[in-house]
Each structure stands twice: as structure tokens, then as C-alpha cells.
Nucleic acid binder design. Structure first.
Length: 488
RNA sequence: GGUCCCGUCGUUCAACCGGUUAGGACAGCGGCCUUUCACGCCGUAAACACGGGUUCGAAUCCCGUCGGGAUCACCA
């Protein structure tokens, strides 16, 4: 009996900052593949034309490389089953969708978004518990369907799901998972713009790329029956499914990790001085137990001992404090030269200083003022205990200021690019909308972002510090302001 | 709300297929070390969600309740 080579993949969509969740899942895919002498691949899922960003793909690759989770095949490296960018595989999906059409496993749907929305609303009003598509196009006969398509009517292609009975699949960590088929609607496979949906692209690619184990986040469990159905419709062998628990926020409810409540961008961790080996170790602690109460280990060591038998399913809370402790352990392990290299690599280097020089230049009397006057360029979080009460100007309430900071963070988040003028515009707009004086906003923001009332031009500093840290400082400031005690 | 998943200290990970004073780590608290801080070391408090079964015996197996999460798109 010949065992197939293990092949796993991480398939992020380039729609924003590289996410810790991506790194988390990548780690387990990587470790599992290496454990079994297999390959780990990177595939970019950029089939959403409206949300994909080209710079995001690069950022994902940089972050994964930073963490040492390198792939054997990918868009930058190529490989025998490329291309590894879904936008470049469009014709493949179209071809496969047509095969399904011919086999009678799928059908064209001519419903417009408007019809769909109206149907959904009507269904909601009728109190029906069904939420999915009502299959009004499922029984259009092949001839009519072909004719309407030929006449240029826009359509999507939907998968024919079973109408009754149960769908069953096996999850490596949970065993059999069963879902009634009436829950499952006829999923769109090919969108009217000709791009595939995740469901089609992921199944087609996993098959063509010979993926043997689909290791992904738990949130995919509900749609796995659709994928299973797709494999069956194609007549393809299914991979093994392994759904990892979701990383959680440190809030009361332990909701799925989100940027509102926790820094989620890998860039943040890098910029804040977390060592990649510490982060990757920490991620390995989430849901996985090394054994013998060992908590500090390298990826190599993890590969040696790894088994899904040692993965637990309670959603692990991403606890920054414990990561910080682990990071300290790794820092202390570094030799002095190595430490120096790391520190200089991060901020104490010519490139970064060049951005700071023009901002502090005219304020300096001693050369030593360079560091002393602007420590906020090098910090992660700030200490508000000294100037914190300046974040609440006279006549404004703590709650008002906290929500202003949050609004700012939110808007900064939504910016396509990050610059001094764009951030300034955000806060000027907020001041206009709220009819607050400029200084009621700028001083609090200065304290929130820089931690002191005397500083070089606020927004230029913000630009240099960067989106990740600024966003976190604003949220931290909101938290601080909301709970602080004002002097009488 | 329907469906699915999950449920051990505040957090994280243990306790092999039933028999333990339920263990380690982070955070907390107390102390030692130290000019201070940090590191390090020692100690301390802290959990089997609840209710029924099965069993001589349940954190461990079964059922129910409760709680939490995820998901219900021409997003992934």
C-alpha cells in the first residue's frame, strides 16, 4: 500500500492586513506537512474582485516568511500545479463548472440580486426557518437555460444539493458531523462576473493541487457538506478534513478574534517588538499541547512531537500577556550581538531614523534630545498615568472621548492608505461633525498616540509610527479614558 | 431564531482507553535575591457549568439542562 504524500495548504485571501489567524492555521498546516515529509503550499484566494488588494498579498507572504513558515509551492515560487493565484485560474473553474452543468449536477440561475433579496425578505416575513435560496431556477430545462445564456442574460451557476436526508462527513478532531440537507441551499459556484466562489475554487484547487489534508478554521464546518457534495459531484476523492478551533478575544464571551478587541495584524506584533520565534511558539500553544507541560519549543521540536491527538477544541483566548512573557524568554536567550542586531533591525536603524530626524531637528538643543524627546517612536503601548487626564478636556465626558477615540480608530482602519494628511482629515471631520473645537480633539489624540503634550507635529508623528501601533494606542486610550478616575 | 461545534483555575495546556490530595505555565498575591527595577528563586490562592443516569467507583461513558461560539451571501 502506497501512502500518498501529505500535502497541505494555507489559502488566505488578500483583503487586508496579514492576520494572526492566518499564521495560526498556517503553522498547523506547515507542521503537519513537515511531520509527514510532505509539502506545504501557499495559494492566494483572490476571487473577490471588490475586496482583493494587491499589496495585501505581498504583506501576507512577508509575514509568513517572517515567521519562518515557508511554503514549497506558491505564487512567487511556482510549482507543478500552478498557477497558485486563483485569479489566474479563472478558465479552470469555468471549465469545471461547465462539466458539472453537463453532468446535471449544477444549473444556471438567472435570478438577479434584486429578486434574491426580495425572496429572502419575503421568506423572513413569512416566518420560515429556511434562509437559503429557494431554487426557483433549478428546474429550468436545459434547452431554455442554454438559450437564455446564449441570449446574453447574466447568470450564476449553482450546485444541486440533495433535498432530503443528511449530509455526513468526518472531521479528524470531532468525528462524524451530520447536517440535515434541508439546511443546505444550492450554493453559487460561479458568480455572474465569471469568477468562482470560495466553494468551487477551493474544491477544484485542492483536488488539482493534490491536497490530502484540509486543515482550516472551525468556521468552515457549516459549509463543509457543500464541499463534500462538490467532491462527489465531480467524482473526486475527498481530502481529510481537520477544523482547528478559532482564536478568541480576551473578552467575557470569548468571541472570535477581531481587530476591534485585539491586535490582529501580524504587522502589529512585528512592529511592537515581538520575536517571530516567540509568536510562532505562542501560536503553537493555542489548542495544542506539546506534552510534559513543556511550553517553550521551536517549530522544529513541534514537528517532532506533533499529532492531532494532542489538539484540544475549546476556543483558545489569545492572551497578549502570556505572549509577552514568552517573548521575554526568547529575548533573554539571545546573545548580545544577536540582540543588538534584532533591536537595530526593528527601529534603531538609519532608515527609520531618517523619518524621525526632520520631525525632531528644530526642537533639539542637545544631540541627546533625539532619543529623549520622542520615545513614542519606539514604544508599543504607552503609559497614560502622567498625562492621561488631558485626554478629557473641560466640558467633555470620559465616555464621549472614549467613543471619539474609537471612531478615529475605526476610520483609520478603513483608510486605503495611511498618511499624515489622511489621518488629520479624519479628526478634522470628526471635530466638524461633533461641532467640537479642534483643540478638544487634537490634544487628546496627541496624548493617546504620543503619550505627552509636547511633541513634534502630531500627524507627521502618527504617520511615522504607523497604522498598527496608532490604531492600538487609540483603542487603549479609549479603554483608559473610560475607566480612569478624574481628579476632582 | 434554525443548524452545527465546544464546555477543567481569570487565561492557556495536562490528568492514557473510569480509581489522582485534579498538575504545569501566564496573570494575581506573599516572600527571597538585589542600591532600584527587571530577571531568577520559593511559596500561596484559584477550576472539573449544572442535573440525572451507568458503575463498587465518573472530570473521564450516556442523556438532559444551561452557557458560550460559529454559521445561515454572486465574502472568503
Amino acid at each position: 500500500m502506497t501512502e500518498k504524500t501529505v500535502r497541505t495548504r494555507i489559502a488566505p485571501s488578500p483583503t487586508g492586513d496579514p492576520h494572526v489567524g492566518t499564521a495560526y492555521i498556517a503553522l498547523f498546516n506547515y507542521v503537519f506537512a513537515k511531520k509527514h515529509g510532505g509539502q506545504f503550499l501557499l495559494r492566494i484566494e483572490d476571487t473577490d474582485q471588490t475586496r482583493s488588494r494587491s499589496d495585501s498579498e505581498l504583506a501576507i507572504m512577508e509575514s509568513l516568511n517572517w515567521l519562518g513558515l515557508s511554503w514549497d509551492e506558491g505564487p512567487d515560487k511556482g510549482g507543478p500545479y500552478g498557477p497558485y493565484r486563483q485569479s489566474e485560474r479563472q478558465s479552470i473553474y469555468k471549465e469545471q463548472a461547465e462539466i458539472l452543468l453537463e453532468k446535471g449536477e449544477a444549473y444556471r440561475c438567472f435570478c438577479t440580486p434584486e429578486i434574491l433579496a426580495a425572496d429572502r425578505e419575503a421568506e423572513l416575513k413569512s416566518g420560515s426557518r429556511r434562509t437559503g435560496y429557494n431554487r426557483r431556477c433549478r428546474n429550468i430545462d436545459a434547452q431554455t437555460s442554454a438559450k437564455r445564456a446564449a441570449d446574453g442574460e447574466p447568470f450564476t451557476i449553482r450546485l444541486k444539493m440533495a433535498v432530503d436526508g443528511d449530509s455526513v462527513f468526518t472531521d479528524r478532531l470531532r468525528g462524524e458531523i451530520r447536517r440535515p440537507n434541508e439546511e443546505l441551499d444550492d450554493q453559487v459556484l460561479l458568480k455572474s462576473d465569471g469568477f468562482p466562489t470560495y466553494h468551487l475554487a477551493n474544491v477544484v484547487d485542492d483536488h488539482l493541487m493534490k491536497i490530502t489534508h484540509v486543515i482550516r478554521a472551525e468556521e468552515w464546518i457549516p459549509s463543509t457538506p457543500k464541499h463534500v457534495r462538490l467532491y462527489e459531484a465531480f467524482g473526486w476523492e475527498k481530502p481529510e478534513f481537520i477544523h482547528m478551533p478559532l482564536l478568541r478575544n480576551p473578552d467575557k464571551n470569548k468571541s472570535k478574534i477581531s481587530k476591534r478587541k485585539n491586535p490582529v495584524s501580524l504587522k502589529f506584533y512585528k512592529e511592537t517588538g515581538i520575536l517571530p520565534e516567540a509568536l510562532v511558539n505562542f501560536l503553537g500553544l493555542m489548542g495544542f499541547s506539546f506534552g510534559n507541560d513543556v511550553e517553550k519549543f521551536t517549530v522544529e521540536q513541534m514537528i517532532e512531537v506533533f499529532s492531532f491527538d494532542n489538539v484540544s477544541l475549546g476556543g483558545p483566548v489569545f492572551d497578549l500577556e502570556k505572549l509577552t512573557w514568552l517573548n521575554g524568554l526568547y529575548i533573554r536567550d539571545l546573545g548580545p550581538e544577536e540582540l543588538l542586531d534584532r533591536v537595530m533591525g526593528l527601529y534603531l536603524n538609519r532608515e527609520y531614523f531618517q523619518k524621525i530626524v526632520p520631525l525632531v531637528h528644530e526642537r533639539m538643543r542637545y544631540l541627546s534630545d533625539f532619543i529623549d524627546s520622542a520615545p513614542f517612536f519606539y514604544n508599543g503601548d504607552l503609559d497614560y498615568s502622567a498625562e492621561g487626564n488631558l485626554m478629557v478636556p473641560k466640558g467633555r465626558t470620559q465616555v464621549e472621548m472614549a467613543s471619539m477615540f474609537e471612531e478615529g480608530a475605526e476610520k483609520i482602519d478603513a483608510l486605503e492608505s495611511f498618511s499624515a494628511s489622511l489621518v488629520e482629515e479624519i479628526f478634522r471631520t470628526i471635530s466638524e461633525q461633533k461641532e467640537w473645537k479642534i483643540k478638544e480633539i487634537f490634544m487628546p489624540v496627541r496624548i493617546a498616540c504620543l503619550g505627552r503634550k509636547a511633541s513634534p507635529p502630531l500627524f507627521e508623528c502618527i504617520e511615522v509610527i504607523g497604522r498598527e501601533r496608532i490604531r492600538r494606542r487609540l483603542r487603549k486610550a479609549a479603554e483608559y479614558v473610560r475607566t480612569m478616575k478624574m481628579p476632582a
